[in-house]
Design a protein around this nucleic acid. Structure first.
Lengths: 147, 147
DNA sequence: GATATTTATATCGTTCACGATGCAAATATA
DNA sequence: TATATTTGCATCGTGAACGATATAAATATC
Protein backbone atom coordinates (compact mmCIF):
# COMPACT_ATOMS: atom_id res chain seq x y z
CA UNK A 1 0.00 0.00 0.00
CA UNK A 2 1.62 3.23 -1.14
CA UNK A 3 1.69 5.71 1.70
CA UNK A 4 0.83 8.61 -0.56
CA UNK A 5 -2.58 7.12 -1.29
CA UNK A 6 -3.64 6.99 2.33
CA UNK A 7 -6.66 9.15 2.90
CA UNK A 8 -5.15 10.39 6.13
CA UNK A 9 -2.44 12.13 4.17
CA UNK A 10 -4.68 14.00 1.80
CA UNK A 11 -5.02 17.73 2.19
CA UNK A 12 -7.89 18.02 -0.25
CA UNK A 13 -9.99 15.47 1.59
CA UNK A 14 -9.59 17.43 4.81
CA UNK A 15 -10.57 20.69 3.14
CA UNK A 16 -13.48 19.00 1.41
CA UNK A 17 -14.74 17.48 4.66
CA UNK A 18 -14.17 20.57 6.80
CA UNK A 19 -15.94 22.70 4.21
CA UNK A 20 -18.96 20.40 4.10
CA UNK A 21 -19.20 20.17 7.87
CA UNK A 22 -19.01 23.92 8.46
CA UNK A 23 -21.57 24.47 5.73
CA UNK A 24 -23.78 22.00 7.60
CA UNK A 25 -23.23 24.05 10.75
CA UNK A 26 -24.65 27.07 8.94
CA UNK A 27 -27.71 25.14 7.84
CA UNK A 28 -29.89 25.40 10.96
CA UNK A 29 -29.05 29.11 11.21
CA UNK A 30 -30.01 29.85 7.60
CA UNK A 31 -32.77 27.42 6.68
CA UNK A 32 -35.32 29.20 8.82
CA UNK A 33 -34.85 32.20 6.56
CA UNK A 34 -35.11 30.08 3.43
CA UNK A 35 -31.41 30.54 2.72
CA UNK A 36 -28.69 28.16 1.61
CA UNK A 37 -25.04 28.78 2.39
CA UNK A 38 -24.10 29.91 -1.14
CA UNK A 39 -27.07 32.26 -1.07
CA UNK A 40 -25.83 33.63 2.24
CA UNK A 41 -22.46 34.28 0.58
CA UNK A 42 -24.22 36.32 -2.11
CA UNK A 43 -25.92 38.36 0.59
CA UNK A 44 -22.56 38.97 2.30
CA UNK A 45 -21.23 40.37 -0.96
CA UNK A 46 -24.27 42.57 -1.55
CA UNK A 47 -24.37 43.80 2.04
CA UNK A 48 -20.83 45.06 1.57
CA UNK A 49 -21.76 46.78 -1.67
CA UNK A 50 -25.21 46.83 -3.18
CA UNK A 51 -26.08 46.90 -6.89
CA UNK A 52 -23.28 44.86 -8.43
CA UNK A 53 -23.17 43.16 -11.82
CA UNK A 54 -23.30 39.37 -11.86
CA UNK A 55 -19.68 39.18 -12.89
CA UNK A 56 -18.40 41.10 -9.86
CA UNK A 57 -20.29 38.83 -7.49
CA UNK A 58 -18.98 35.77 -9.31
CA UNK A 59 -15.38 37.01 -9.12
CA UNK A 60 -15.70 37.83 -5.45
CA UNK A 61 -16.95 34.33 -4.70
CA UNK A 62 -14.59 32.75 -7.25
CA UNK A 63 -17.54 31.03 -8.88
CA UNK A 64 -18.54 30.90 -12.53
CA UNK A 65 -21.57 32.81 -13.76
CA UNK A 66 -23.20 29.53 -14.77
CA UNK A 67 -23.30 28.66 -11.08
CA UNK A 68 -24.36 32.08 -9.89
CA UNK A 69 -27.01 32.90 -12.45
CA UNK A 70 -29.54 30.24 -11.44
CA UNK A 71 -28.74 30.91 -7.79
CA UNK A 72 -29.54 34.60 -8.26
CA UNK A 73 -32.70 33.70 -10.14
CA UNK A 74 -33.87 31.64 -7.19
CA UNK A 75 -33.05 34.46 -4.80
CA UNK A 76 -34.94 36.91 -7.00
CA UNK A 77 -37.92 34.58 -7.00
CA UNK A 78 -37.69 34.47 -3.20
CA UNK A 79 -37.89 38.26 -3.10
CA UNK A 80 -34.40 38.85 -1.74
CA UNK A 81 -32.98 40.75 -4.70
CA UNK A 82 -33.71 42.33 -8.06
CA UNK A 83 -31.92 41.82 -11.37
CA UNK A 84 -32.15 44.59 -13.92
CA UNK A 85 -30.25 45.25 -17.13
CA UNK A 86 -27.30 47.61 -16.86
CA UNK A 87 -27.90 51.09 -18.24
CA UNK A 88 -24.42 51.78 -19.51
CA UNK A 89 -23.80 48.18 -20.62
CA UNK A 90 -26.89 46.26 -21.68
CA UNK A 91 -25.07 42.93 -21.36
CA UNK A 92 -24.73 43.30 -17.63
CA UNK A 93 -27.30 42.30 -15.07
CA UNK A 94 -27.16 44.55 -12.03
CA UNK A 95 -28.12 42.73 -8.86
CA UNK A 96 -29.49 44.76 -5.99
CA UNK A 97 -31.06 43.96 -2.65
CA UNK A 98 -34.76 44.32 -1.94
CA UNK A 99 -35.84 45.71 1.44
CA UNK A 100 -36.33 42.09 2.48
CA UNK A 101 -32.78 41.24 1.47
CA UNK A 102 -31.46 44.19 3.42
CA UNK A 103 -33.52 43.32 6.46
CA UNK A 104 -31.88 39.91 6.65
CA UNK A 105 -28.59 41.51 7.61
CA UNK A 106 -29.92 42.41 11.03
CA UNK A 107 -31.76 39.15 11.43
CA UNK A 108 -28.62 37.16 10.69
CA UNK A 109 -26.29 39.33 12.72
CA UNK A 110 -25.59 36.54 15.19
CA UNK A 111 -24.63 33.97 12.60
CA UNK A 112 -20.88 34.64 12.22
CA UNK A 113 -20.24 34.49 15.92
CA UNK A 114 -22.38 31.38 16.43
CA UNK A 115 -20.60 29.49 13.68
CA UNK A 116 -17.26 30.85 14.81
CA UNK A 117 -17.79 29.50 18.30
CA UNK A 118 -18.82 26.10 17.00
CA UNK A 119 -15.48 25.77 15.21
CA UNK A 120 -13.05 26.91 17.88
CA UNK A 121 -11.19 24.06 19.49
CA UNK A 122 -7.83 23.10 20.87
CA UNK A 123 -5.66 24.01 17.92
CA UNK A 124 -7.99 26.52 16.28
CA UNK A 125 -8.23 29.61 18.46
CA UNK A 126 -8.44 33.37 17.94
CA UNK A 127 -4.65 33.31 18.25
CA UNK A 128 -4.05 30.64 15.59
CA UNK A 129 -6.77 31.70 13.16
CA UNK A 130 -4.60 34.27 11.34
CA UNK A 131 -2.06 31.59 10.42
CA UNK A 132 -4.83 29.25 9.23
CA UNK A 133 -6.29 32.10 7.16
CA UNK A 134 -2.85 32.76 5.70
CA UNK A 135 -2.45 29.10 4.71
CA UNK A 136 -5.86 28.97 3.06
CA UNK A 137 -5.41 32.32 1.32
CA UNK A 138 -2.05 31.22 -0.04
CA UNK A 139 -3.54 27.99 -1.36
CA UNK A 140 -6.44 29.89 -2.90
CA UNK A 141 -4.15 32.44 -4.52
CA UNK A 142 -1.80 29.79 -5.81
CA UNK A 143 -4.63 27.84 -7.41
CA UNK A 144 -6.64 30.75 -8.79
CA UNK A 145 -3.75 32.18 -10.79
CA UNK A 146 -5.05 31.42 -14.21
CA UNK A 147 -2.12 32.49 -16.38
CA UNK B 1 -20.95 47.69 7.93
CA UNK B 2 -20.42 45.16 10.67
CA UNK B 3 -16.92 43.82 10.51
CA UNK B 4 -18.06 40.30 11.31
CA UNK B 5 -19.97 40.10 8.05
CA UNK B 6 -16.96 40.83 5.88
CA UNK B 7 -16.27 37.95 3.57
CA UNK B 8 -12.57 38.34 4.27
CA UNK B 9 -13.18 37.29 7.84
CA UNK B 10 -15.03 34.13 7.09
CA UNK B 11 -13.34 30.82 7.72
CA UNK B 12 -16.02 28.77 6.00
CA UNK B 13 -15.73 30.74 2.78
CA UNK B 14 -11.99 30.09 2.68
CA UNK B 15 -12.46 26.37 3.25
CA UNK B 16 -15.24 26.26 0.68
CA UNK B 17 -13.12 28.05 -1.91
CA UNK B 18 -9.91 26.16 -1.20
CA UNK B 19 -11.79 22.88 -1.36
CA UNK B 20 -13.36 23.73 -4.70
CA UNK B 21 -10.09 24.92 -6.19
CA UNK B 22 -8.10 21.86 -5.13
CA UNK B 23 -10.86 19.64 -6.44
CA UNK B 24 -10.53 21.51 -9.72
CA UNK B 25 -6.81 20.81 -9.63
CA UNK B 26 -7.58 17.09 -9.48
CA UNK B 27 -9.92 17.33 -12.44
CA UNK B 28 -7.42 17.17 -15.34
CA UNK B 29 -5.65 14.26 -13.61
CA UNK B 30 -8.83 12.23 -13.12
CA UNK B 31 -11.14 13.08 -16.00
CA UNK B 32 -9.02 11.16 -18.49
CA UNK B 33 -9.86 8.04 -16.49
CA UNK B 34 -13.53 8.93 -16.34
CA UNK B 35 -13.28 9.72 -12.64
CA UNK B 36 -14.62 12.54 -10.50
CA UNK B 37 -12.95 13.59 -7.26
CA UNK B 38 -15.52 11.94 -4.95
CA UNK B 39 -15.19 8.76 -7.00
CA UNK B 40 -11.42 8.96 -6.54
CA UNK B 41 -12.02 9.18 -2.79
CA UNK B 42 -14.03 5.96 -2.93
CA UNK B 43 -11.17 4.29 -4.76
CA UNK B 44 -8.72 5.49 -2.10
CA UNK B 45 -10.87 3.83 0.54
CA UNK B 46 -11.20 0.58 -1.40
CA UNK B 47 -7.51 0.46 -2.29
CA UNK B 48 -6.75 0.56 1.42
CA UNK B 49 -9.22 -2.23 2.10
CA UNK B 50 -11.26 -4.00 -0.53
CA UNK B 51 -14.78 -5.43 -0.11
CA UNK B 52 -16.36 -3.02 2.34
CA UNK B 53 -20.05 -2.43 3.05
CA UNK B 54 -21.52 0.88 1.87
CA UNK B 55 -21.80 2.11 5.41
CA UNK B 56 -18.08 1.73 6.15
CA UNK B 57 -17.18 3.70 3.05
CA UNK B 58 -19.70 6.38 3.95
CA UNK B 59 -18.34 6.69 7.48
CA UNK B 60 -14.76 6.87 6.27
CA UNK B 61 -15.67 9.71 3.90
CA UNK B 62 -18.07 11.26 6.40
CA UNK B 63 -20.80 11.22 3.78
CA UNK B 64 -24.36 9.95 3.98
CA UNK B 65 -25.38 6.79 2.17
CA UNK B 66 -27.83 8.79 0.09
CA UNK B 67 -24.82 10.56 -1.42
CA UNK B 68 -22.69 7.46 -1.79
CA UNK B 69 -25.23 5.02 -3.13
CA UNK B 70 -25.82 6.72 -6.48
CA UNK B 71 -22.10 7.45 -6.72
CA UNK B 72 -21.32 3.76 -6.27
CA UNK B 73 -23.99 2.84 -8.79
CA UNK B 74 -22.33 5.07 -11.35
CA UNK B 75 -18.94 3.54 -10.59
CA UNK B 76 -20.41 0.06 -10.91
CA UNK B 77 -21.87 1.00 -14.28
CA UNK B 78 -18.42 2.26 -15.29
CA UNK B 79 -16.97 -1.15 -14.44
CA UNK B 80 -14.80 0.03 -11.54
CA UNK B 81 -16.49 -1.96 -8.79
CA UNK B 82 -19.08 -4.58 -7.93
CA UNK B 83 -21.90 -4.38 -5.41
CA UNK B 84 -23.21 -7.64 -4.02
CA UNK B 85 -25.46 -8.43 -1.09
CA UNK B 86 -23.77 -9.35 2.15
CA UNK B 87 -23.83 -13.04 3.02
CA UNK B 88 -24.03 -12.70 6.78
CA UNK B 89 -26.27 -9.62 6.66
CA UNK B 90 -28.54 -9.37 3.65
CA UNK B 91 -29.17 -5.68 4.26
CA UNK B 92 -25.59 -4.80 3.50
CA UNK B 93 -24.14 -4.16 0.08
CA UNK B 94 -20.51 -5.20 -0.10
CA UNK B 95 -18.53 -3.06 -2.50
CA UNK B 96 -15.45 -4.56 -4.08
CA UNK B 97 -13.05 -3.49 -6.81
CA UNK B 98 -13.02 -5.00 -10.27
CA UNK B 99 -9.65 -5.68 -11.93
CA UNK B 100 -10.17 -2.39 -13.73
CA UNK B 101 -10.70 -0.58 -10.44
CA UNK B 102 -7.54 -2.14 -9.03
CA UNK B 103 -5.53 -1.29 -12.11
CA UNK B 104 -6.30 2.39 -11.67
CA UNK B 105 -4.17 2.49 -8.52
CA UNK B 106 -1.00 2.16 -10.57
CA UNK B 107 -2.24 4.46 -13.29
CA UNK B 108 -3.02 7.19 -10.77
CA UNK B 109 0.10 6.71 -8.69
CA UNK B 110 1.43 10.14 -9.65
CA UNK B 111 -1.68 12.05 -8.67
CA UNK B 112 -1.03 12.75 -4.97
CA UNK B 113 2.40 14.18 -5.61
CA UNK B 114 1.26 16.25 -8.59
CA UNK B 115 -1.58 17.82 -6.65
CA UNK B 116 0.63 18.21 -3.59
CA UNK B 117 3.15 20.19 -5.57
CA UNK B 118 0.48 22.43 -7.06
CA UNK B 119 -0.60 23.47 -3.57
CA UNK B 120 2.73 24.15 -1.89
CA UNK B 121 3.48 27.83 -1.53
CA UNK B 122 5.02 30.34 0.78
CA UNK B 123 3.14 29.51 3.95
CA UNK B 124 2.14 25.94 3.09
CA UNK B 125 5.25 23.76 3.05
CA UNK B 126 6.14 20.22 4.11
CA UNK B 127 7.15 21.80 7.41
CA UNK B 128 3.87 23.62 8.04
CA UNK B 129 1.51 20.95 6.66
CA UNK B 130 1.26 19.00 9.94
CA UNK B 131 -0.06 22.07 11.76
CA UNK B 132 -2.56 22.73 8.96
CA UNK B 133 -3.64 19.09 9.12
CA UNK B 134 -4.04 19.39 12.88
CA UNK B 135 -6.24 22.48 12.51
CA UNK B 136 -8.46 20.83 9.92
CA UNK B 137 -8.69 17.56 11.81
CA UNK B 138 -9.66 19.40 14.99
CA UNK B 139 -12.38 21.32 13.13
CA UNK B 140 -13.63 18.11 11.54
CA UNK B 141 -13.67 16.26 14.85
CA UNK B 142 -15.38 19.12 16.63
CA UNK B 143 -18.13 19.30 14.03
CA UNK B 144 -18.65 15.59 13.49
CA UNK B 145 -19.33 14.85 17.12
CA UNK B 146 -22.97 14.03 16.81
CA UNK B 147 -23.92 13.63 20.45
C1' DG C 1 -43.34 -16.59 18.17
C1' DA C 2 -45.63 -12.08 17.15
C1' DT C 3 -44.80 -7.24 17.25
C1' DA C 4 -41.91 -3.24 17.62
C1' DT C 5 -37.65 -1.04 16.85
C1' DT C 6 -33.37 -0.43 14.77
C1' DT C 7 -30.22 -0.80 10.97
C1' DA C 8 -28.55 -0.76 6.04
C1' DT C 9 -29.46 0.83 1.88
C1' DA C 10 -32.25 3.02 -1.72
C1' DT C 11 -35.25 6.62 -3.84
C1' DC C 12 -36.85 11.34 -4.47
C1' DG C 13 -36.62 16.36 -4.84
C1' DT C 14 -33.92 20.58 -4.62
C1' DT C 15 -29.76 23.11 -4.90
C1' DC C 16 -25.32 23.70 -6.00
C1' DA C 17 -20.74 23.19 -9.15
C1' DC C 18 -19.04 23.14 -13.53
C1' DG C 19 -17.86 21.91 -18.46
C1' DA C 20 -19.86 22.97 -22.84
C1' DT C 21 -22.48 25.75 -25.65
C1' DG C 22 -25.43 29.69 -27.19
C1' DC C 23 -26.47 34.54 -27.87
C1' DA C 24 -26.60 39.35 -27.83
C1' DA C 25 -24.18 43.57 -26.81
C1' DA C 26 -19.86 45.91 -26.82
C1' DT C 27 -15.39 46.56 -28.72
C1' DA C 28 -11.60 45.92 -31.94
C1' DT C 29 -10.06 45.55 -36.56
C1' DA C 30 -10.14 45.86 -41.39
C1' DT D 1 -18.93 51.35 -41.55
C1' DA D 2 -18.78 46.35 -42.27
C1' DT D 3 -16.73 42.30 -40.06
C1' DA D 4 -14.47 39.89 -36.44
C1' DT D 5 -13.55 39.21 -31.74
C1' DT D 6 -14.44 39.67 -27.03
C1' DT D 7 -17.37 40.09 -23.12
C1' DG D 8 -21.44 39.21 -19.99
C1' DC D 9 -24.84 36.38 -19.07
C1' DA D 10 -27.95 32.40 -19.83
C1' DT D 11 -29.07 27.53 -20.85
C1' DC D 12 -28.17 22.59 -20.75
C1' DG D 13 -26.51 18.20 -19.00
C1' DT D 14 -24.19 15.54 -15.42
C1' DG D 15 -22.67 14.56 -10.94
C1' DA D 16 -22.49 15.44 -6.41
C1' DA D 17 -24.63 16.79 -1.41
C1' DC D 18 -28.29 16.34 1.55
C1' DG D 19 -32.98 16.47 3.86
C1' DA D 20 -36.90 13.57 3.79
C1' DT D 21 -38.93 9.35 3.07
C1' DA D 22 -39.30 4.37 1.90
C1' DT D 23 -38.24 -0.60 2.32
C1' DA D 24 -36.48 -4.80 3.73
C1' DA D 25 -33.67 -7.35 6.89
C1' DA D 26 -31.95 -7.90 11.49
C1' DT D 27 -32.62 -7.39 16.33
C1' DA D 28 -35.08 -6.34 20.56
C1' DT D 29 -39.19 -6.63 23.25
C1' DC D 30 -43.26 -8.49 24.72
Amino acid sequence: MKEQFRLNNQLCFRLYTASRLITQAYHPLLSGHGLTYPQYLVLLVLWEQDAQPVNDIAKRLKLETNTITPLLQRMEKAGLLLRRKGETDARQMIVSLTPQGKKLQKQLSGVPETVGRSVLCESVTPATLPELYRNLDDIINKLSNKE
